[in-house]
Design a binder for these strands. Structure first.
Lengths: 211, 211
DNA sequence: GATGTTAACTTAACATTGTTAAATCATGCT
DNA sequence: AGCATGATTTAACAATGTTAAGTTAACATC
């Protein structure tokens, strides 16, 4: 029973319905549970219908990825309200970490799996846009701390600072994501490890109070 | 033409033949190229023969992983020759990074993909063994620096220090592994980023010369 | 030395996957 | 009424991991 002539808005609606179904499988059953047929069953469509809305599975996954990038950016934006720039930077990083802990599967998809050449125009995200691009936000926060002269004088490349901060935080989150259940390592509590990394940033990047 | 009755050594030989073939596909064609049939073709066996030596594909992959863990540990051991403990620690980390750059596919398999519950006895690696376990080596190096009193006094948990060092280094390596070709980020050179992380460690963890 | 047992290996087959080509089906237009 | 068209499904294909059922050759035993 195909009701005919779908408006563009209705098509978009179906797109998000598919994305939501895929995301649900994804979050609950893990990444390998996302099969085209299972998604289709969940929304009462046939598997091939998905191909009318997404080129292939890869495109669907990237669409999920994009919507969650937007969600991450929206979440991070809340940290922007904090006034003190240093406090804002630290909270920004911690919010990012909490996101990675709350949505481990999304985090893996977004930041731990190889992207296929990633043509930017095939993405619905506008990069270098403050509202949509979390990395852009990070750069902004870092720049404010930098312009306030609060980083150690040896550090003179804000973009490199941002990339180092990201790498350090990502390292804790990613190792936890992958190896939290590996018993051969006597892991400290994840909050402890995040705190240790934050303190490393403070001691290694920020000026001493008297400097 | 099955020549009969294989000694245990011959069986082990076939095991490593399979592993080597799988590794080769793996390194050159990427991780998704490792299909049981392609491995089999490469060594002139039938695909099902592999199942006589490995329970399933997962077990084969973990076997590759294990042998490369050993290779990593052996590589890292060279850094142990350095006398100055701080220099040794830094070189240790850098050697680790170079390994991750030289063998990105192995690195992904070893440290970026989720392990299935990872029963330690199903692994051929002896954990907490200095010769075979890279993390154990890291702990040893960190402990020496710690015992020499060269870390900042706030840092009083060597294992946490080790985990933070690992996380920071892993973060740079893993982000590079995943996103090196993402053009929406103005990546600094990978060597520059590794250096920045090392300097962060130095400034944030080690005592000042005059302390 | 014939015979049967067994280890090593292969062939055939199955279920599941992503994906495409062909068919169906309902609606809107003329 | 009839037809064109878009939305959807069914059927089918190729590839994958994996298992079950053979096949073959070496060894042991009589």
């Amino acid at each position: 029973m195909p009701p005919k002539v779908k408006t563009e808005a209705e098509k978009q609606q179906i797109r998000t319905t598919i994305i939501d179904a895929a995301r649900e499988l994804f979050v609950n059953k893990g990444i390998e549970a996302v099969t085209m047929r299972s998604i289709a069953k969940r929304i009462g469509y046939s598997a091939t219908t998905i191909y009318l809305y997404f080129a292939d599975k890869e495109a669907l996954l990237r669409a999920i990825c994009d919507t969650d990038m937007l969600k991450l950016a929206a979440t991070l934006k809340e940290a922007m309200a904090i006034e003190d720039p240093v406090e804002r930077l630290l909270t920004f990083g911690h919010t990012y970490s909490l996101f990675s802990l709350a949505y481990p599967n999304h985090y893996r998809l977004m930041f731990m799996m190889p992207r296929p050449a990633h043509a930017p125009e095939s993405s619905s995200i506008i990069y270098n846009n403050f509202e949509q691009d979390a990395y852009c936000q990070l750069k902004a926060v870092v720049n404010e701390v930098y312009d306030a002269g609060l980083f150690k004088p040896e550090l003179n490349d804000p973009e490199l600072i941002a990339q180092t901060l990201w790498a350090g935080t990502h390292g804790v989150c990613a190792l936890h994501n992958t190896m939290a259940n590996d018993t051969w390592i006597n892991w400290r509590d994840i909050e402890t490890r995040l705190l240790a990394m934050r303190e490393l940033f403070i001691r290694g990047m920020l000026k001493e109070p008297n400097e």
